[in-house]
Design a protein around this nucleic acid. Sequence first.
DNA 1: GATAGCGGATAGCTTCACTATCCATTCCCT
DNA 2: AGGGAATGGATAGTGAAGCTATCCGCTATC
Lengths: 219, 219
Amino acid sequence: MRISELSAASGVPLPTVKYYLREGLLPAGERTARNQAEYGPEHLARLRLIRALVEVGRLSVADVHAVLAASDNPRLPLNDVLGAAHDAVTRRAAPNRGEPAWNDARALVLDMAKQRGWQVHEQHCAALEQAADAVAAVVATDMPELYPLIDVYFEAVEPMARREVEAVLSMGSEDQIVRGVVIGTVLGESLLNALRLLAQQSVSTELLEGGEAGEATGA
Amino acid sequence: MRISELSAASGVPLPTVKYYLREGLLPAGERTARNQAEYGPEHLARLRLIRALVEVGRLSVADVHAVLAASDNPRLPLNDVLGAAHDAVTRRAAPNRGEPAWNDARALVLDMAKQRGWQVHEQHCAALEQAADAVAAVVATDMPELYPLIDVYFEAVEPMARREVEAVLSMGSEDQIVRGVVIGTVLGESLLNALRLLAQQSVSTELLEGGEAGEATGA
DNA sequence: GATAGCGGATAGCTTCACTATCCATTCCCT
DNA sequence: AGGGAATGGATAGTGAAGCTATCCGCTATC
């Protein structure tokens, strides 16, 4: 497969394919001459993965690079690949990290996690810090009615994470597991959020229109 | 409160405050002279809300504008505000919308939602389409082990959405409800994802290190 | 009455993700 | 064997986004 075919098969413009090659997201093809290279189906799969991460997962090219680099390293412990994927999905710090209000939020989240028996790596835990960002922001806007939702999220996420990790771990080869972690972390986030919104719409139609018009759209 | 105090109190650089004023995210202060204006605590709250949406929720300035415009309109039905918030959190189309594989994914999600009795507005439903994007991407990467997770997400999201809508609806004044919808939709997403990652880490440490070293970091 | 700060307008900056253009080389069809 | 198209590689340019800097004439405050 030559570069133009790779471009055609994936739907990615040829200059963009070249760009990904330059940036190291896509490994170079097998050289057959000074200015000729051969690309295989694994390049196509990789390209599709990149696009899914960028378009559906909204990762930056730099983050995709970091995730793929971690997942390409065959001697990296699985936990580090998970960490890289989490970092990519997470990396964006609110600027109030370290302020008292933020520290309180972090302590609150940490405490709730520990009460549930979660094992949290306390230092440099991107997920914990992002949770603190969100809680601190909710607190700053002064809406106590939303506080109970924190617990709702904790509750919802516990069985979910277990099923996710089990699903990924059941994938046989280390190689597949690593790919599963990346896909599952990034695309799972997008899917989960979409379904959450869908459910919200359903419930709010039910509660709001139910008493007014009663016209059920779906089901 | 003058503009420099507003900047100092919020931690937002003064030129950025001016920028938000220009863009219409922040309403102008009350003019006291040709080149003097007075800002109140509602401006400070608004500024904090903007920053939370931008930094924690990762909304673009344009999306923040759209959400705030919808929530500022006092005669807009609540469902439309919810729609605007959902759109802002959602808007990013994968370029394969309409292809057969994507249509299949959409049909699958729609079917699962209907089987659960959800009321889905079928035409132009951003959440449904985003879910289809994610499912199509998972399918394209050929990882059937992840398919059962779709159902896991459906399951998790159902009680969650109910609690969220109820929490927001319990907020008394229409005004508060609208603010709650915006905050809850955007920051809730961020928090939910962070907690999901935290739980994943906990479970994977448990399953992976549990048999090897057994050194529980947290708890 | 000096001077610091104001609002408003305009222009500039940086990053990101591409996109376009060259070039010498090579493929591949006739 | 000859010639147009495509290739890998390098370099430069583009457009959007989100600020940031500078200037201006005016005003509040000391």
